[in-house]
Amino acid sequence: MRLILTTILCSSIFLLAGAATTLAEGDYPEDIYYMKPVIGVVFSHQLHVEDNGMDCDSCHDGIFEMEARLAENEESFTMAGLADGEFCGACHDGDTAYDANTRCTTCHVGVIGYSRAHGLVNEEGPAHH
């Protein structure tokens, strides 16, 4: 099943890559919210692809699988792992992009950020009793 999914995803990406060097708006998934090892770490394709002009191969060539959130299953998907250059840390090393060890809440939007993005809270924040 995973193989089929990957194949489909890969072929669609190849088709897209043939049409344009970078993806157009809407051709990539919505923001991804990682839930492990901590809840609410956001990754924005829009920010990385549209705003920063990166292409698929920048990450999907050995760093991240095409399927979203598979990284959560890896033991090195931690802040220590990132510091060793794994996953986000491949670029977020303080050289290519800002160090993963800084600006914590830029990516860590937390339970509050996750809830807001999924319409689980009103604009005033989480419910209080």
């Binding site: 901590v38 809840i39 609410g40 770490v41 809440t105 860590h108 939007v109 937390g110």
Partner: peptide, 9 residues
């Protein structure tokens, strides 16, 4: 507080 990431553990 600069370390808090609202993971709510």
């Amino acid at each position: 507080i600069e370390n808090c990431i609202d993971c709510e553990k």
